[in-house]
Nucleic acid binder design. Structure first.
Length: 1159
RNA sequence: GGGCGCGUAGCUCAGUUGGUUAGAGCGCAGCCCUGAUAAGGCUGAGGUCCCAAGUUCGAGUCUUGGCGCGCCCA
């Protein structure tokens, strides 16, 4: 017996049963154990942050992350799934600050770093319960018990190991970064914060004269005309930039006689704007010709100190500052075509300086000129009249000073967007250089690009599109953060000489000579034994630890090493997870970590949404390429230097890691589209434009949500959250399949069908359920059975092919199509067999076996997609009836099965095509009935079927009974007189003829249409070609170059499509009418049976009382038929005593119907 | 302002190397079927394939330029 179908329970309730079952039987672990020793399929979990509530977007990523590992496990791989949590970073600090009611860094310091980071650590787990519950409820199988956590000591030490590796190879360095700086608050703002604060403001806009110098350094009578909207940056001017490709002229002011260099194109605009008479005094020259010219900066403050020559790397020498340099970003859209460069106050400006520096020898390169302090006030290096004042307040005085010295050419107001601090609206931000630690990613740029090119991105435009473009514009990774809650940067600096050293583990640190400061942690721990041990490698405890320098330090061992204050970008944490999740610290490190890492690297599969392009996707690729990619250009350079100095060949700098063939650290990556709210906007809590995941689970279930994600669109399209669509996936797919299962169970139990039996040995088409034994082999079964099993295996083959290509959307499409065929054709066409009286007839058993095989295999097919439904089916169809896992040898869970891959020998493409044709003809017949308003219950005499292609005609003729039954007609004829019903249309095959005929193409179709289809056909039949003359040119058309279509002639009740016409005989004779009435009556009686609560097997007696002679005649004529259909022992034309009749309308007639159960 | 992606039916989306009748599901309207039944089936209406120009015998598809939306970055 199969367990009866529980009609009262919904999908969500059954899912909870399944969850309990998985937990009790430890099924996830079993699936792993079952693949012990199997080839690995490596999955990396991109760590979410658990300090916010999970929303439907997270359900999407977690669903797709579950799908492929489940699939690959069933395909025979061992797929470990280690969960992970991202726990560091500013968002955590901000949450804690909110809680404490504080904002600035200073306030945090006043509160105390120690209690602050303790609060951060606790805050990280605030929503952990919700996350774990969601993960479980969604059916995401992942090892939460052994999750990696980025603040754990082993993780941090692993990160340290990697940073030490980079540092020792010269790939981690300290430099400057231009940031948006909130001077009053003393902190840098993230790009997100800056973006929030843009406002339109009017700033002064000044055109300033920079007098040119001649070759001897003497002033000339020409000036560079330079434009800026930030006069306060002028004292820190260092260069003037031109675009080498733009034309410049020397212009002369006809009134004053002054000469200016400006972009030729802007001369007119400038003259209009300033109402001066300017004319070109020279013919235009390329900007390239100006490069290297020197000028007098607008302020003298640095001039006496830095107006010096220095050695160039290539041998010559050059002035360090106040020269014209080339920059591509210079345009003629505004200004003068000459741009004032103050590298301290603009990212582009700073890059100019970096470029310049690279041309000088290291020790003589230009310094950064910066007359402004971090407080936003001018320093003592600035001109006296602005010293100590807030820079923005000085714009006017600076302009006035320039004017008084005759250097101001023009002045105006300029309206533009400028960022202000989002926490202090009146404070404008300034761009400002901060010291920062960088990873020299630019030195592995080519390697990253090569590595990227080997990754299988889905969709593939990510590779050369968003991600590829991003790599092309790579800049060094600004790693450090002047914050508190993060992985401390493991660099210790000599307090005497500034000599730096990287530390690769806590142990290494404690092993240093003369270590001090460990008591800070120890005391805290003693005072509070509950303190989480991992915190000892965090601020402030780690900062307290110092040690003695060794004799190899520049201080000769007289100084002490102290840690730098910064923590690192938490993106580095996430990008380090491929090795840090195991605590890997190199080949010399812990051996267990080494083994885990080597077997789980690189990943076969990862997936996140597209917003991770510059996040996790990049951080992983960059770190992996740095550690295991080809040698960086910087290292090669160092190697050459060392070689030069030492004279040794093949010198390679320190490098602890081996190279690993690309791609790594991941091979396949599904980039999910962003999930939008119900209104198409970004999902946000405040807008309430989505439902809580739990509501969805309770209402529709996790399978409904998962199927909606997998089957509704390719995963990379951005997906508009739609509760309706989730709801729809229930009847569209889940319920339809469930109904088939329910049908099977009801009748299998009535007939006592059991999959356990003394049946045949396994063979093609027999079930993949160990312990089940079918009666007959595939070849012995009916065509319908062979057809659906062919479809089943074909579907499995398609699904496997698509899933191996990470195309779940197409895979789901194939499954949906199969379930439709199973439900709407196989089951419907097999009903008679299921209802046959002889319980043991071979045909009946075949039907059960076939449907059983379809259902159990479908359960396996859908297992990775909708794991709950699959499990319910499996439990009820296999595990329970076969007492799974014990007697029968059938796996106790569907997830322990091997995935069906489709048995090629069971696939019959021809049968599939033929059955499709039958379905198509039936559909057309129904269409014809509809257009003639002849309902299917009314039998008709015959249909005529006309086929354009008679390949399958003979087969169809043998199967005419099926069509006759579907269409309720007495006779199906395949007409040999098509001309009677259809007219032909001969069309050109554009694809073939287009190449052959070219320009004549448009005339072919009308030429063919001008002749009768029948003639053309005859022509084609007799001569094997059609001859046409187009524009006097003879054209021969071969049969394959023509397409023959036909349609029903008017006057027939017919439907046509795709080379098939079905013509209906519409005449209704009295006999046919009577039969129709009988069928109507059957339906009425069946309804009545159901209403009165008859069991499927109850026998009844029926009375039909009517005034209509037609109806009486019909009852009389078809009483046997009616009795058989309705399980009636007799059908009489008289009332039945003691039974309330029901008044019914049958056709055009009314009647009283009595039914009574016969005991 | 730049990069990337998207724009097809009321909604959500498919649409092969360019080929002349642009599809599906939902929704809507009508009908049918009914012992799987709080299911199922059929039919219909509904399209300027965002706009414009170009390439081509032929463009939803390719090119260019707009417009709109989204994401990422300035």
């Amino acid at each position: 017996m199969f367990p009866p179908v529980d009609k009262d329970r919904g999908f969500p309730e059954r899912e909870l049963d399944v969850l309990r079952f998985w937990k009790e039987r430890n099924v996830y672990q079993q699936t792993l154990d079952a693949r012990d020793g199997a080839p690995p399929f490596v999955f990396f979990e991109g760590p979410p942050t658990a300090n916010g509530m999970p929303h439907p977007g997270h359900c999407l990523t977690r669903s797709i992350k579950d799908l492929y590992p489940r699939y690959k496990t069933m395909r025979g791989y061992r797929c470990e799934r280690k969960a992970g949590w991202d726990t560091h970073g500013l968002p955590v600090e901000v949450e804690v600050c909110k809680e404490l009611g504080i904002h600035s860094k200073e306030e945090i310091e006043n509160f105390g770093i120690e209690p602050f980071i303790q609060k951060c650590q606790a805050s990280v787990w605030r929503y952990m319960n919700e996350w774990e519950r969601l993960t479980e409820r969604l059916g995401f199988w992942v090892d939460l018990k052994h999750a990696y956590v980025t603040y754990h000591q082993s993780f941090i030490e692993s990160v340290w190991w990697s940073l030490k590796n980079l540092f020792d190879r010269g790939l981690l360095y300290k430099g400057h970064k231009i940031v948006w700086w909130w001077a009053q608050g003393g902190t840098a703002l993230s790009s997100g914060e800056v973006g929030q604060g843009y406002r339109e403001v009017a700033d002064p806009s000044v055109f300033v004269k920079f007098p040119l110098l001649d070759k001897d350094g003497e002033p000339t009578d020409e000036s560079l005309l330079v434009w800026t909207t930030t006069p306060w940056t002028l004292p820190s001017n260092q260069f003037v930039a031109v675009n080498s490709a733009i034309k410049y002229v020397t212009a002369i002011d006809e009134e004053s006689g002054e000469k200016f260099v400006v972009a030729a194109e802007l001369l007119g605009t400038l003259a209009d704007k300033t109402k001066r008479k300017l004319r070109a005094d020279t013919s235009p020259v390329d900007g390239a010709g100006l490069i290297g010219e020197r000028y007098i900066p607008p302020f003298e403050c640095y001039r006496d100190k830095y107006d010096t020559m220095a050695q160039l790397a290539n041998g010559g020498s050059s002035y360090t500052s106040w020269r014209i340099v080339a920059a591509d970003f210079v345009t003629t859209e505004s200004g003068t075509g000459l741009v004032h460069i103050a590298p301290a106050f603009g990212e582009a400006d700073f890059e100019v300086l970096e470029d310049e520096r690279s041309q000088f020898n290291n020790d003589t390169e230009p310094l950064l000129l910066n007359a402004v302090g971090p407080d936003g006030k001018f320093t003592d290096e600035a001109p006296e009249f602005v010293r100590g004042r807030w820079v923005k307040d000085c714009d006017k005085d600076i302009t006035r000073d320039l004017k008084s010295r005759g250097l101001l050419f023009h002045q105006e107001q300029y309206l533009h967007d400028y960022p202000f601090c989002w926490r202090a609206e009146e404070d404008p931000l300034i761009q400002y250089p901060r010291e920062s630690w960088f990873i020299r990613t630019t030195s592995v740029k080519e390697a990253m690009i090569e590595n990227n090119s080997k990754i299988n991105w889905l969709p593939d435009h990510i590779r050369d599109g968003r991600f590829g473009k991003f790599l092309e514009s790579n800049v060094d990774w600004a790693l450090s953060r002047e914050r508190f809650w993060g992985t401390p940067l493991p660099i210790w600096v000599c307090n005497k000489t500034g000599k730096k050293e990287a530390i690769g583990s806590y142990e290494e640190l404690l092993d240093k000579p003369g270590v001090r400061g460990t008591e800070v942690w120890n005391n805290s721990k003693r005072a509070n034994p509950n303190l989480v041990d991992d915190l000892r490698v965090h601020k402030p405890y780690i900062d307290a630890i110092t040690y003695e320098c060794s004799s190899t330090c520049d201080c000769k061992g007289t100084g002490r090493k102290e840690r730098v204050s910064e923590v690192i970008d938490c993106w580095y944490d996430s990008g380090a997870m491929p090795f840090a999740q195991w605590g890997y610290r190199g080949e010399e490190g812990p051996s267990q970590a080494r083994d885990r890492f080597s077997s789980q690297f690189p990943a076969d599969f990862i997936s996140e949404a597209i917003d991770q392009t510059r996040g996790w996707f990049y951080s992983q690729l960059a770190i992996s390429t740095l550690l295991w990619g080809k040698q960086s250009s910087h290292e090669s350079m160092l190697a050459k230097v060392v070689e030069k100095v030492t004279g040794k060949d093949n010198v390679v700098p320190y490098r602890e890691t081996k190279t690993v063939p690309y791609p790594h650290p991941f091979k396949n990556c599904i980039v999910l589209g962003l999930m939008l709210g119900e209104d198409g906007q970004k999902m946000s809590k405040s807008k309430r434009n989505y439902r809580e995941p739990n509501e969805i689970f309770d209402k529709y279930g996790a399978d409904a949500l998962r199927w909606y994600f997998f089957a509704n669109q390719p995963p990379w399209t951005s997906i508009r959250y739609s509760e309706q669509s989730i709801k729809d996936s229930v009847p569209e797919f889940l319920l339809r399949l469930w109904n088939v299962y329910s049908f099977f169970t009801i009748y299998a139990n009535i007939d006592g069908f059991s999959p356990v039996g003394s049946g045949n040995s396994s063979s093609a088409g027999t079930p993949r359920v160990p312990g089940a034994a079918p009666k007959r082999l595939l070849a012995q079964r009916s065509e319908l059975d062979r057809w659906i099993l062919s479809e089943l295996n074909r579907t499995a083959a398609i699904v496997v092919e698509r899933m191996d290509a990470y195309d779940n959307f197409a895979a789901c499409g194939a499954i949906t199509e199969f379930v439709d065929a199973l439900s709407n054709w196989y089951v419907r066409r097999s009903r008679d067999r299921f209802w046959a009286a002889d319980k043991q007839s071979a045909e009946k058993l075949d039907a059960y076996w076939t449907l059983y095989e379809c259902l159990t295999t479908t359960a396996q097919l859908i297992a990775p997609f909708t794991p709950f439904l699959a499990e319910s089916l499996w439990q009820n169809l296999v595990a329970k009836p076969l007492s799974g896992g014990k007697a029968g040898g059938a796996p106790e869970s569907v997830h322990l099965c091997d995935y069906p891959t489709g048995d090629a020998s069971a696939i019959d493409e021809q049968l599939s095509a033929r059955m499709n044709l039958v379905r198509h003809i039936s559909s057309l017949g129904r269409q014809a009935r509809t257009s003639a308003s002849l309902k299917v219950r009314q039998p008709l005499a015959r249909v005529e079927v006309i086929l354009a292609d008679n390949t399958h005609q003979k087969w169809l003729e043998e199967h005419a009974a099926v069509i006759a039954e579907e269409l309720n007609v007495k006779l199906v004829e395949f007409s040999d007189e098509p001309d009677k019903y259809v007219e032909h249309e001969v069309l050109p095959n554009f694809k073939l003829l287009g190449k052959k005929l070219g320009k004549l193409m448009p005339k072919i179709k009308p030429a063919l249409a001008s002749q009768s289809g029948a003639e053309l056909l005859a022509n084609l039949r007799d001569n094997g070609k059609v001859d046409l003359v187009i524009d006097g040119e003879a054209v021969q058309l071969l049969p394959e170059e023509l397409e023959i279509r036909f349609k029903a002639k008017p006057g027939w009740t017919a439907a046509n499509d795709k080379g098939v016409v079905v013509v209906l005989a519409t005449e209704v004779t009295p006999e046919l009418l009577a039969e129709g009435l009988a069928r109507d009556l059957v339906r009425v009686i069946q309804d009545r049976r159901k209403e009165t609560g008859c069991e499927f097997t109850d026998r009844i007696e029926v009375g039909v009382v009517t005034d209509s002679p037609e109806l009486r005649a019909a009852v009389e004529m078809f009483s046997e038929y009616i009795a058989a259909e309705t399980l009636a022992v007799r059908v009489t034309p008289a009332p039945i005593q003691g039974v309330e009749p029901v008044k019914v309308t049958i056709g055009d007639y009314s009647a009283d119907v009595y039914i009574r159960v016969v005991k």
